[in-house]
C-alpha cells in the first residue's frame, strides 16, 4: 500500500487515476482473454521450438507460459494507454501462434 500521498491519503487521487469505463473494460479484456491468449501462444511456440526432448520442451513451455500470464496482466493495467496495451500484446500473440503453426505438428 502507498504512503501518505498515495491511496492512503483518501479517495480523490484514485478516482482521478481510474481510467474511464471503456478503458477499464478494454484493459480487463486484455488482462483476461488477452493474457491467456498470449500465454497460450507462447506455450505453443516454445513447445515446438525449444531444443529439448518432446516431454521436456512441453514441460518448460507450459511453465514459462504460466509465468508470462501475470506479466501480461500487469502490463494490461500499467501501459499508459489502452492502444499501447493491445499494441504490444496483439503482435506477441500473433507471432506465437504463427511460429507454432509454421513449425507444424510433430512427426
Amino acid at each position: 500500500m502507498a504512503g501518505s500521498t498515495g491511496e492512503g491519503g483518501g479517495e480523490s487521487p484514485l478516482l482521478r487515476m481510474a481510467p474511464a469505463w471503456t478503458g477499464i473494460a478494454m484493459r480487463t479484456l486484455a488482462a483476461t482473454i488477452g493474457a491467456y491468449a498470449l500465454a497460450s501462444a507462447l506455450a505453443m511456440a516454445l513447445a515446438r521450438t525449444l531444443p529439448l526432448s518432446r516431454a521436456e520442451a512441453t514441460c518448460l513451455a507450459a511453465m514459462v507460459a504460466v509465468l508470462a500470464m501475470p506479466a501480461a496482466v500487469i502490463w494490461a493495467f500499467a501501459a499508459r494507454t489502452v492502444t499501447r496495451t493491445w499494441g504490444v500484446m496483439l503482435p506477441i500473440i500473433a507471432l506465437g501462434f504463427l511460429a507454432a503453426w509454421l513449425m507444424g505438428s510433430p512427426a
Partner: peptide, 17 residues
C-alpha cells in the same frame, strides 16, 4: 503450477495433439 495440464494444455496440444 499444480493444475497447468488442465489450465494451460496448449504446450501439450502443440507437441502431442
Amino acid at each position: 503450477m499444480t493444475l497447468i495440464t488442465l489450465t494451460m494444455p496448449w504446450a501439450i496440444v502443440a507437441n502431442y495433439g
